[in-house]
């Protein structure tokens, strides 16, 4: 399926792929983004990849109409089979009900024991599709369908930094204290975002990620 390119905002171009979440699309977006960032490094201000779109924000003096054609041309020259140099992350998570405050209710909603939830959540190899929403929040794919669970009917005003959660078909980690509408099942001390680091967000799109269960005493001494 061909891509579409649409102006979005005063200096943005929204490039869209077919409206489905797939690893094939994620790979295409990854490679395209990488090439574009090199070719237009003097014109681009920000580039935001998501599941099936890539938004490029340009300096306001850039002529977007001219760019559109260039982008189409570049897209057709890219080799999407190139290897991706991705990193694998092991995230220690304590799934104790005192930290995973929705584990008990989720267990009855899903008709699974807490141990089964922990096993199903810590077995898959997740892919980081992109970082979005708030600083350092990774959008992950690969959640076991048995763990798909509705969001809370009303969001909590504040959840603790490092909360690991399930919302709909997605799972993620709250990088900072924030409002949240997902079911909290555990917590990690892994630092997802530090604005003062040279690389504030160590996890990148296309990285793989696994949750490693730890005990409450391991969590407390970590």
């Amino acid at each position: 399926m061909p891509i579409t390119i649409l102006q979005f905002g005063i200096s943005g171009l929204l490039i869209s792929w077919e409206n489905i979440i797939s690893s094939k699309t994620s790979r295409k977006i990854y490679h395209f983004n990488k090439v574009i960032l090199k070719v237009f490094k003097n014109e681009i201000v920000d580039s935001v990849p998501t599941y099936c779109s890539l938004t490029l924000y340009f300096k306001q003096s850039t002529s977007l109409i001219k760019l559109k054609n260039q982008l189409f041309n570049i897209y057709h020259t890219i080799d999407f089979s190139t290897d991706i140099n991705s990193h694998h992350w092991k995230i220690p998570v304590c799934y104790h009900p005192s930290l995973g405050i929705d584990l008990v209710s989720l267990s009855s909603t899903l008709k699974l024991s807490i141990d089964e939830i922990i096993l199903l959540h810590s077995t898959p190899l997740y892919t980081v599709d992109f970082i979005g929403f708030l600083p350092g929040f990774p959008y992950l794919s690969g959640l076991d369908t048995q763990l798909h669970a509705p969001r809370l009917s009303s969001p909590r005003p504040l959840v603790k930094k490092g909360s690991v959660a399930i919302g709909g078909k997605q799972t993620g980690i709250y990088a900072n204290t924030s409002p949240a509408g997902w079911n909290i099942i555990g917590r990690t001390r892994f630092e997802l975002f530090n604005a003062k680091d040279i690389n504030p967000c160590p996890i990148s799109p296309m990285d793989t990620l696994q949750f490693i269960p730890i005990t409450l005493s391991e969590f407390n001494t970590a």
Binding site: V48, Y57, F133, L134, F193, P200
Partner: peptide, 11 residues
């Protein structure tokens, strides 16, 4: 704040 939106950082 430009250049960090790919890390989820608002403008």
């Amino acid at each position: 704040r430009f250049g960090s939106r790919h890390l989820g950082v608002p403008v």
